[in-house]
């Protein structure tokens, strides 16, 4: 695993980047649950043609679906991920200070590093368990 494989630009740390991820969305721009409000509340789109309303938070990674047109993205975010650092600041990107935003970016990076290594560890443990079984079989059999 290399340093280069984790480019923060791929993780929607800017509102404009999050806005661009919304390939399709069931609600119109005048609904409370519109694309721009979703991006403002920290969500980026991670759905597909079958689940077009799946989004995730760029800081806490909380994934949510089953949205209604009248849902308030900020309120739902707070409800489902009360410990998210972004929702606890409770302000749109343009109203955050640079210091606050940078702290968030550092937090995201920590979260991503841990996630990456947890996944890798899981894979390694699974692979080794399989190999261990094979080893036992090859010697006993």
């Amino acid at each position: 695993m290399d340093q280069e494989d984790m480019d923060l630009r791929d993780y929607c740390i800017l509102e404009s980047q999050r806005l661009e991820t919304f390939k399709s969305w069931p609600f119109k721009a005048d609904a409370p649950c519109c694309v721009s409000k979703m991006a403002e509340a920290g969500f980026y789109w991670c759905g597909n043609e079958h689940e077009i309303d799946t989004v995730a938070c760029f800081v806490c990674g909380k994934s949510l679906d089953g949205w209604d047109a009248n849902d308030d993205p900020w309120a739902e975010h707070k409800k489902h991920a009360p410990r998210c650092a972004f929702v606890n600041l409770g302000r749109a990107e343009k109203d955050l200070t640079v210091a606050e935003w940078l702290e968030l970016v550092i937090q995201i990076k920590t979260y991503l590093i841990n996630k990456q290594y947890d996944q890798m560890r899981k894979k390694v443990v699974k692979y080794c368990e399989r190999k261990r079984e094979e080893l036992i079989k090859s010697i006993k059999g």
């Binding site: 990107e93 343009k94 109203d95 955050l96 200070t97 640079v98 210091a99 935003w101 940078l102």
Partner: peptide
């Protein structure tokens, strides 16, 4: 720079 708003910076 720390005290600036992100909106201003952008």
């Amino acid at each position: 720079i720390h005290d600036m708003k992100m909106g201003e910076l952008m």
